[in-house]
Write a protein that binds this DNA or RNA. Structure first.
Length: 431
RNA sequence: UCCGCGAUAGCUCAAUGGUGGAGCAUUCGGCUGUUAACCGAAGGGUUGCAGGUUCGAGUCCUGCUCGCGGAGCCA
């Protein structure tokens, strides 16, 4: 038997085919029964007329509950009323495995219940659409860098020390070497890679043990981090905006159906085209004060501050030249005015906040040594990192993009937990 | 960690301090074009846990547990 998926039905109009999948929903009206088949590639209404079938097949439809696995056979028919454009004039029905009392019914459910049943919730149409868009974004990310001469380089996940010192890390015993920590960023390793390969990117899971309890935080999330030798802050911003434009436009082109399922208003995504506005930190402060915020120069932008700044524009906005005090030790200070770091955050529109954080890195050995001292970091742990400045140091820049925040923004979700198949949050690590 | 809100049927929610209900799901019956189908019927409850106030507590009070939203921190 040839295996056919619902997404391929257009090639089989008028032919008898067999499909395998799960019972999404069913309706009956006496002598006619409608079975909605779901196979991961789409949805198909299968029509069972009593007059066309042997009684055993017609009665079989009564036995099966939602999410039973089934095999249907019938003739493919074009049907303008059907969401997918096709319908099946069914001639046979086989039960592969019966399901009864499936917990997630077609009515509303609370978030706690859905998260407890995340392994089943993934079968819902919106979750399937999100998973497909997440996949497209991952593919777009890899295509973007692969097509531009970058090499993918995987950093370690178990690391001996904190990259930025400030965040809390997950700790785990590591044989005779004391404790190891789950990585919160592959960046320092990416810098080593950039000195070897010129242009690299890392892409993998990262971990933050901070007790953040908001819609913008997970304890385990995915991050992509490009790092480029000889790029300065402006090159870095050029790369970031081209990158985001590519991701968003690719999803718009390839996932129109999924965005429709999610009822995403795409007009604001259409705007995501270069150039993005570039706003100096001082300008951002001015914008906040004009909007009645009593903002103290030198502070980092909070979530609501970010929203106010991004609302001034119709596309992502890049805020650069943050006060060095609030930024990480490895960021290069502006030679013109060292109270600023050559840092950039990209804020997504519609209140989605920071999706990219990046900077030009400190490439001067002496300055970097000073920073390590100022931040009370153990120099010995960074000797390898300092070697990158001892042996052929060059200006270089990079940034990190949070995958789930990007998925959440593009899909129009109200919480990061739906942007990853099995979210890990402060009060939940199951299923 | 802090602030706020909540926990009642499998699920989503009602119930003035006075006999705990509805919709969906489930089971049974009806319907030849339904699309969160519809119509009729049935079963389904230690009201999160522990104490207290009261003639009487789902409802008021105290503590605990769990969850949700937000802040800080960050992608």
């Amino acid at each position: 038997m040839q295996k056919i998926r619902i997404s391929e039905l257009g090639n089989f109009v008028g032919q008898e085919v067999t499909l395998q999948g799960w019972l999404f929903n069913k309706r009956s009206s006496g002598k006619i029964k409608f079975i909605i088949l779901r196979d991961g590639s789409g949805y198909l209404q299968c029509v069972y007329f009593k007059g066309n079938l042997v009684p055993e097949v017609f009665d079989l439809a009564d036995k099966i509950g939602q999410e039973s696995s089934i095999e249907v056979t019938g003739k493919v028919k074009e049907e303008p009323r059907a969401p997918g454009g096709y319908e099946l004039d069914a001639t046979n029905l086989k039960i592969i495995s019966e399901a009864h009392d499936y917990p997630i019914t077609p009515k509303e459910h609370g978030i706690e219940f859905l998260l407890d049943n995340r392994h089943l919730w993934l079968r819902s149409s919106k979750q399937v659409a999100i998973l497909k868009i997440r996949h497209r974004i991952v593919k777009a990310i890899r295509d973007f860098f692969d097509d531009r001469g970058f090499t993918l380089m995987d950093p370690p996940i178990l690391t001996p020390n904190a990259v930025e010192g400030t965040s809390t890390l997950f700790e785990t015993p590591y044989f005779d070497l004391g404790n190891a920590y789950l990585t919160q960023s592959g960046q320092l390793y990416a810098e080593a890679g950039a000195m070897a390969l010129g242009k690299v990117y890392t892409f993998g899971p990262t971990f933050r043990a901070e007790k953040s309890k908001t819609r913008r935080h997970l304890t385990e999330f995915w991050m992509v981090e490009p790092e480029v030798a000889f790029n300065d802050l402006n090159d870095n911003m050029d790369l970031a905006e081209e990158f985001l434009e590519y991701i968003v436009q690719t999803v718009l082109k390839e996932n129109a159906n999924e965005l429709k399922v999610l009822e995403r208003d795409t007009t604001k995504l259409q705007n995501v085209k270069r150039p993005f506005p570039r706003v100096h930190y001082d300008e951002a402060v001015e914008i906040l004060r004009k909007n009645g915020i009593d903002f103290k120069w030198g502070n980092d932008l909070g979530g609501s501050d970010e929203t106010i700044v991004s609302e001034q524009y119709d596309r992502p906005v890049m805020v650069h030249h943050y006060p060095a005090e609030v930024k990480a030790f490895y960021m290069k200070r502006d030679p013109e005015d060292p109270k600023y770091a050559l840092a950039v955050d990209v804020l997504a529109p519609e209140g989605y906040g920071e999706i990219i954080g990046g900077s030009q890195r400190e490439d001067n050995l002496d300055f970097l040594l000073e920073r390590i001292k100022e931040h009370n970091l153990p120099q010995s742990a960074f000797e390898w990192y300092l070697d990158l400045r001892r042996f052929g140091s060059v200006p270089h820049s990079g940034f990190g993009l949070g995958l789930e925040r990007t998925v959440s923004w593009i899909c129009g979700l109200d919480h990061l937990r739906e942007a990853i198949p099995f979210p890990r949050m402060i009060y939940r690590n199951t299923p």
